[in-house]
């Protein structure tokens, strides 16, 4: 069965027709061509598909596209401002916090939410905030350091 939905993705309004079983991840990747969110497991275990749904981090592989009706979605593609990296993205680049990059989109989205929720997260809060996002390359340390540095940069 098909459904008509309206949603705002990365500040752009969309009217879309989605199937009942279609996931938000599928909608983003296949209908909108936003392939930044990755399909790492399709079961909500790896976090590579993390996006913001009404400012909350969700695994978009576990959310149905119809649930995005009248919602605001932010993907990794929506984090940079007119081609200029966000403070967090620049900090990831400066701290060598991306290697293969497959988890990076989800990490950035999770970190963005983390810094929205807590203005001064300590290192343990940052680690806990990333617990749902698996990374096999970096060992997380550079990612945590990048987020801590971004949070300091933002305060000044």
């Amino acid at each position: 069965m098909k459904h008509e939905i309206d949603c705002i993705v990365n500040d752009q309004a969309h009217h879309l027709t989605v199937a009942s079983h279609e996931t938000l991840l599928c909608m983003l990747r296949e209908q909108l061509g936003l392939t930044g969110a990755k399909n790492g497991c399709a079961t909500g275990e790896c976090g590579a598909c993390s996006v913001l749904l009404n400012d909350e981090v969700v695994n978009s592989c576990l959310v149905l596209a119809v649930e995005a009706d009248h919602a605001t979605v932010v993907t990794v593609e929506g984090l940079a401002d007119e081609g200029e990296l966000s403070t967090l993205q620049q900090s990831f680049l400066d701290h060598s916090a991306t290697q293969c990059g497959f988890c990076t989109s989800g990490m950035l989205v999770a970190a963005t939410a983390l810094l929205k929720q807590a203005s001064r997260p300590d290192v343990n809060a940052v680690r806990a905030g990333l617990a749902g996002n698996l990374c096999r390359c970096t060992g997380y340390d550079d990612i945590v350091k990048a987020i801590m540095a971004a949070s300091r940069a933002r305060r000044t």
Binding site: L85, L93, S96, T98, G101
Partner: peptide
Amino acid sequence: RPFARVEGQRRLTGTARYVDDLD
């Protein structure tokens, strides 16, 4: 010397295309 990854920006903006991302 430290030098940022040349493809880092693409990996950080979701524009790096992996095989499943190709159209």
